[in-house]
Simulated assay, not measured.
Amino acid sequence: MRGQGARRARQAADDGLAHEITVLHLASRKTYGVLRIHAELRRLGRRVNLNGVRSNCLTAAVSLCQLDA
């Protein structure tokens, strides 16, 4: 099927981001919300969109992130 490889690559990237979000959230003793996690990812050199982080928190790590603003 067309585009299947691209979908797999996108899913792998999303899974990696979800893992990074989980690690950062746990390292912050579960205090960081979406805004701080986004800022920390940017500080670490990861180019991510705030909405992408928010979406990932909602889908992959629902209980991890407070949706602060």
Rank of each mutant, 00 (worst) to 15 (best):
A27T: 13
G3R: 13
L41Y: 00
G33H: 05
Q11D: 07
L67H: 04
L50F: 09
R36Y: 01
I37R: 03
L44K: 04
G16D: 13
T59A: 11
A18L: 07
K30A: 15
V23M: 13
Q4S: 14
T59W: 06
V62D: 10
I21M: 04
A12V: 11
N49K: 12
R2T: 08
Q4T: 15
E40I: 00
N51R: 15
V48C: 03
S28N: 08
R43L: 06
L44H: 02
R10W: 06
N56C: 11
A18F: 02
A12F: 08
S63P: 04
R54N: 02
R2S: 10
V48N: 06
N51L: 12
D14A: 15
A69F: 02
S63M: 09
V34R: 05
G5A: 12
L41S: 07
A27R: 15
Y32K: 09
S28F: 00
H38D: 00
L44D: 10
V62S: 14
N56T: 10
A13T: 11
G5P: 07
S63L: 11
Q66M: 12
G33P: 03
S28E: 08
L41I: 01
S28A: 11
A13I: 03
N56S: 10
A13M: 00
T22Q: 13
H38Y: 07
V53I: 09
R29T: 14
R8P: 01
L24P: 02
T59D: 10
A61D: 09
H19G: 12
L58C: 05
S55A: 13
L17W: 00
A60E: 05
E20T: 00
L24W: 08
H25S: 12
N51P: 04
G45A: 07
Q66G: 06
V23S: 08
G52D: 04
T31W: 12
Q66I: 11
L26K: 15
G45L: 09
G3T: 07
I37L: 02
A61N: 15
R36F: 02
G33M: 05
N49M: 05
A39S: 07
K30V: 09
V23Q: 13
T31L: 13
D14K: 15
G33V: 01
H19S: 15
Q66Y: 09
V34C: 09
T22E: 14
V62P: 12
L24E: 01
V62E: 11
A27M: 14
R7D: 05
G3L: 11
A27H: 13
V62C: 11
C57E: 02
A13E: 05
L17M: 05
D14L: 14
S28H: 09
D68G: 06
G52F: 02
L64P: 06
N56E: 00
